[in-house]
Design a protein around this nucleic acid. Structure first.
Length: 331
DNA sequence: CAACCGACCTGTTCGC
DNA sequence: TGCGAACAGGTCGGTT
């Protein structure tokens, strides 16, 4: 699940590997990987262009090409990028191959086919026109963050996931930032006191910065061209359902907010009375789970229970899968 | 504007 | 042991 730190890591790895090379051809194996689903136009558009720079905007890798063209690569849930020698081991999940002039190729591998690659040029519409500010940029000040918070009526968790509100935050770092700032995910932006706003701003930036240094969280399918990250070993809330809160020792709870798994400590992250009115569904679910004797997990209506060791087992299995993927791609 | 839904996809895990 | 349902979640387009 690549978010800002994971995509930043992929972009940095890729930059060191491909800047200066020239794209010779493009082979599309799954048409819808291309935003405009036109393999011929895409190949014509990239062939002969030199790779000038690689960066990131929100959760997308941006590859700048000669002549003012640029590629946007959204990894979505399961997208991976590898740079390998041509003719290396292949696998059925490679969706797009960019052949380089130096005997290597860039492979975009994506099990679930959600990922998208766009090609833009001078005069084409800006794909980031509706994207919010970069949270690690110098001009993302606490004052700027306050202004944005006060212009919104929504609850914090969905707000942090809204790319128009702030760019690059996904499910992992939204939960982590809220835990660190001691703010309930259902808290409304408008009820925040100045100190709350400041803590959220501070911890959001601190956690994203730390995660970039640690090369992101290698959970499920995420890996970068030059190897896994280690931030998954330093998460405080995400996927720690039932494990003790590292501040108070009480079990981390899991609820569904806006259709997304949300992990938090109901002791450290209180919901003020004023915000309870619109949070009935989640609160009722938690009360029902409590009545049924579930102390450490809360479930959406009708869902089964979640085993205590699930997170651990999932992590182990995912690491094995990533290793297999790297081997098959020849990386 | 906010909240919610289904759609897009496949592999893994869960409940029975 | 095997099967189908549930789940993972980023984003878009549509509805309430």
């Amino acid at each position: 699940m690549p978010e800002l730190p994971e995509v930043e890591t992929v972009a940095r790895d890729l930059r060191g590997l491909i800047v200066g090379a020239t794209i010779v051809d493009a082979e599309t194996r799954w048409e819808r990987t291309l935003r405009d689903a036109d393999p011929e136009a895409f190949a014509d558009g990239v062939a002969g262009r030199r790779i000038e720079a690689v960066g990131r905007r929100a959760k997308q890798v941006v590859v700048e090409l000669s002549g003012g063209a640029y590629l946007t690569i959204h990894l979505k849930m399961t997208g991976q990028l590898f740079v390998v020698p041509q003719g290396g081991p292949d696998d059925p999940y490679v969706r797009l191959v960019l052949e380089l002039d130096d005997g290597r190729e860039i492979r975009f591998r994506d099990i679930r086919k959600f990922g998208r690659v766009g090609l833009y040029g001078v005069g084409t519409a800006d794909p980031f026109a509706a994207t919010g500010p970069e949270p690690l940029a110098d001009d993302f000040t606490v004052a700027a963050f306050r202004r944005r918070l006060r212009s919104r009526k929504g609850r914090l968790k969905p707000l942090l996931l809204d790319q128009a509100f702030v760019a690059g935050v996904g499910n992992i770092y939204a939960d982590e930032a809220l835990w660190a700032a001691r703010l309930h995910p259902l808290r409304t932006a408008r009820t925040l006191r100045p100190a709350d706003e400041r803590r959220l701003w501070l911890h959001l930036r601190r956690i994203l910065t730390e995660a970039v240094i640690r090369r992101g969280s290698s959970i499920d399918d995420y890996t970068a061209p030059e190897g896994d990250g280690e931030m998954q070993e330093h998460l405080e809330a995400y996927q720690r359902t039932g494990e003790p809160c590292r501040r108070c020792g009480r079990p981390i709870r899991r609820v569904v907010v806006g259709g997304r798994a949300t992990h938090f400590c109901s002791w450290c992250q209180r919901l003020p009375a004023g915000d309870r009115a619109g949070a009935k569904a989640v609160l009722a679910t938690m009360a029902a789970a409590r009545r049924r004797g579930m102390r450490w997990t809360e479930l959406a209506a009708g869902q089964g229970s979640v085993g205590l060791n699930r997170a651990e087992r999932t992590r182990t299995a995912a690491a094995t899968r990533r290793a297999a993927a790297r081997a098959s791609v020849g990386g």
